[in-house]
C-alpha cells in the first residue's frame, strides 16, 4: 500500500508540473502583443516597453517558461492588475470559502446519490424508481446558474426564508478563523447563532452546486447496482440463503462502488468548475467569483492562479479516489 501511495504522490507532482506548462502555453496563445495586453488600452509606447522588459516578455519562450516555473515553485503567481496585490495572497483568502462550499455540496451529493441509487435499484421500476430517475436526469440537464436564480427568487425573495447572496451578513462578525470554514469555526467558538447563520447562507448554493453531482452519482450507482444484482455471485449468495439487505448493502454495493467512485472523482472536477457559475449567482466570495471578475477585467494572472489551485485540488481528490479503489478492491492491492 505504501509504494502505491508514494507512486500516486509522485504522479501528482508530475501532473501539476504538466498543468503549469499547459497554463503557460494558454497564456501565450493570445493573439497580439502580450506586453500591450498587460499594459492595457491607454498605455504609451514607453510603458509597453517597460512592461515588456519587466515581465521578461522580450526573452525567448523557453526562458520565459523556466522563469515562470521557477516563480511557481516559490509560490509567486504574479500580481493582479486590478488590485495590484499578490495573486497568491488573494487566492489564500478565498480558498476556504470555495472549499467549504464544495465539501458541503460533495457531502450532499454522495450521501443522497448513493442512498437513492441503491434504493432505486432495489425497488426497480416502482413509482419511486421512476420519480428518482426523472429527478436524476433533470438534475444533470438543469443549468446551475438558472436553478440558482430560481431558488433565490423563491426561497429568498418570495418566501424570505433564506438570504439572497453572500457568505455572511455584513453586520455580524464572522467566526474566529481556525480552519477558515465558517460552519466548523462557529461551532469551535461555541456560537450557535453564527452556526445557523452560516448554514442559512451556505445551504442554497450548496444544494445548487450539488445537484448535477448528485444526479450523476445516483444514475451510475443505480445502473451499477442493477448490473451487479444480476451477476452470478449475487445469484449464488441468494441461493445460499443470505438475507436481502446483507446481500445488497455489503456484497452488491461493494462491487458497485468501484465505478461509482470513479464518477465521484470526475464529478468533483465538474463541481469545482461549476463554482465559477454558482459563486457568481450567489456572490460567494470564493475562487470562482475571483476568476470570473478577473477574466472580465482582462486581469489574467488571477485566472491562471485559480486554474492552478483548482486543478491541484482536483488531482488530489483523484489520488484519494485511487487509494480508495485499492482499499475496496483487494485485487488492486496485490497487483501494485
Amino acid at each position: 500500500m505504501l509504494t502505491f501511495t508514494l507512486k500516486r504522490l509522485l504522479a501528482l507532482v508530475g501532473t501539476m508540473l504538466g498543468v503549469a506548462i499547459l497554463t503557460f502555453f494558454i497564456s501565450n496563445i493570445a493573439p497580439g502583443d502580450p506586453a500591450r495586453l498587460v499594459a492595457g488600452q491607454n498605455a504609451t509606447e514607453d510603458m509597453v516597453e517597460t512592461i515588456r522588459v519587466e515581465y521578461g516578455l522580450d526573452k525567448p519562450l523557453l526562458t520565459q517558461l523556466s522563469i515562470y516555473l521557477g516563480n511557481l515553485a516559490q509560490g509567486d503567481l504574479g500580481k493582479s492588475i486590478v488590485s495590484t496585490r499578490d495573486v497568491t495572497q488573494e487566492l489564500a483568502s478565498r480558498i476556504p470559502a470555495t472549499l467549504e462550499l464544495v465539501f458541503c455540496a460533495m457531502g450532499l451529493g454522495i450521501i443522497f446519490g448513493v442512498t437513492l441509487g441503491v434504493l432505486s435499484a432495489v425497488w426497480r421500476d416502482s413509482w419511486f424508481d421512476q420519480a428518482v430517475r426523472i429527478f436524476s436526469i433533470s438534475g444533470v440537464a438543469i443549468p446551475a446558474f438558472w436553478l440558482g436564480i430560481l431558488m433565490q427568487l423563491y426561497f429568498s425573495v418570495h418566501m424570505g426564508w433564506l438570504p439572497v447572496s453572500g457568505r455572511f451578513p455584513l453586520v455580524m462578525a464572522p467566526p474566529e478563523s481556525v480552519t477558515g470554514f465558517y460552519l466548523i469555526d462557529s461551532l469551535l467558538e461555541g456560537s450557535l447563532t453564527k452556526f445557523w447563520t452560516s448554514l442559512s447562507y451556505i445551504i442554497l448554493p450548496a444544494i445548487v452546486l450539488s445537484l448535477p453531482c448528485l444526479a450523476s452519482i445516483l444514475r451510475v450507482n443505480r445502473s451499477e447496482m442493477i448490473e451487479v444484482l444480476q451477476s452470478d455471485h449475487i445469484v449464488a449468495a441468494r441461493a445460499h440463503g443470505l438475507s436481502q439487505w446483507r446481500v445488497i448493502c455489503y456484497y452488491a454495493l461493494k462491487n458497485a462502488l468501484i465505478p461509482t467512485l470513479a464518477i465521484i472523482g470526475l464529478r468533483f472536477g465538474w463541481m469545482l468548475g461549476s463554482t465559477v457559475l454558482v459563486e457568481t449567482v450567489f456572490d460567494w466570495p470564493g475562487l470562482g467569483l475571483y476568476a470570473v471578475s478577473s477574466a472580465l477585467s482582462s486581469d489574467f494572472k488571477p485566472v491562471i492562479g485559480v486554474t492552478l489551485v483548482i486543478t491541484f485540488f482536483f488531482v488530489l481528490i483523484n489520488m484519494i479516489v485511487d487509494l480508495a479503489y485499492a482499499w475496496v478492491d483487494p485485487r488492486l492491492r496485490s497487483a501494485k
Binding site: L22, I26, I29, G269
Partner: peptide
C-alpha cells in the same frame, strides 16, 4: 489526455477564453 482532463472543464475553458478574448 490526462493532463487536459486534470483541469476541470469550465475552469480550463474560462482560462482559454480569458486568454483569447
Amino acid at each position: 489526455t490526462d493532463l487536459f482532463l486534470s483541469v476541470p472543464g469550465l475552469v480550463l475553458a474560462l482560462a482559454i477564453v480569458a486568454s483569447l478574448g
